Deep mutational scan, measured.
Amino acid sequence: NLFVALYDFVASGDNTLSITKGEKLRVLGYNHNGEWCEAQTKNGQGWVPSNYITPVN
């Protein structure tokens, strides 16, 4: 599942992941309501807002 970041997101805690607009990432899963997804980039792994990313076509 390859996705791309639509916006910059700055991590606010130990379990969140900073991403940069245009960065590619893999989604590993979603939380119970789908608002957050666990993602992996070359810089690490953590939670990002699911509305900040979109699938790569």
Rank of each mutant, 00 (worst) to 15 (best):
T54Y: 09
V10C: 08
E38D: 14
Y7M: 08
E23K: 02
L17D: 01
N51A: 10
C37F: 04
V10D: 03
Q40A: 11
G29C: 06
T16C: 01
T20V: 11
K21F: 02
Y30D: 07
I53Q: 00
S50E: 05
A39V: 12
I19Y: 00
N57R: 08
I19R: 00
Y52G: 11
D8M: 01
N1Y: 15
P55M: 13
N57Y: 09
Y52M: 14
G46K: 01
E38N: 08
N51K: 12
W47I: 06
P49D: 02
N57I: 03
G13F: 08
D8L: 00
N33D: 10
Q45A: 15
V27E: 00
N57G: 04
T20G: 06
Y30H: 04
Q40H: 13
D14C: 13
H32I: 11
F9W: 09
S12M: 15
N1I: 02
G22I: 01
G34T: 09
T41G: 14
G13R: 11
L28T: 08
T41M: 05
T20M: 06
A5P: 15
T54K: 14
G29F: 03
Y52S: 12
T20L: 13
P49W: 02
E35P: 07
H32T: 13
W36F: 13
Y52L: 13
N31P: 05
F3P: 00
F9L: 11
V4E: 11
G44D: 05
G13S: 12
N33F: 11
V4H: 07
A5D: 01
E38T: 07
F3Y: 03
E38Q: 05
N57V: 13
I19M: 09
N43H: 08
N51S: 12
W47E: 01
W47R: 08
G46V: 06
S18R: 15
Y30T: 11
E23D: 13
A11M: 08
Q40R: 14
Q40S: 13
S12L: 09
I53H: 01
V48W: 00
P49L: 04
W36S: 13
A11T: 11
T54W: 15
H32D: 14
N33G: 13
D14I: 06
I53T: 10
T20W: 05
T41Y: 07
G44F: 06
N57W: 01
K21H: 15
T20D: 04
V4M: 07
D14K: 07
I19T: 04
G34E: 15
N51Q: 03
N57K: 15
V27M: 12
T54L: 07
Q45G: 05
G22P: 00
G34Q: 14
G34F: 07
N31G: 14
G29I: 04
T54H: 12
I53E: 00
K42Q: 12
S12R: 11
L28R: 12
A11P: 07
P49R: 11
V10I: 12
Y30N: 07
P55D: 13
S18M: 12
T20E: 04
G29S: 10
D14N: 12
N51R: 10
N15D: 12
N51W: 06
L17R: 04
Y7Q: 13
V27R: 06
S50Y: 09
D8Y: 04
V27A: 08
P55G: 09
V56G: 08
E38V: 06
L17V: 08
G46I: 09
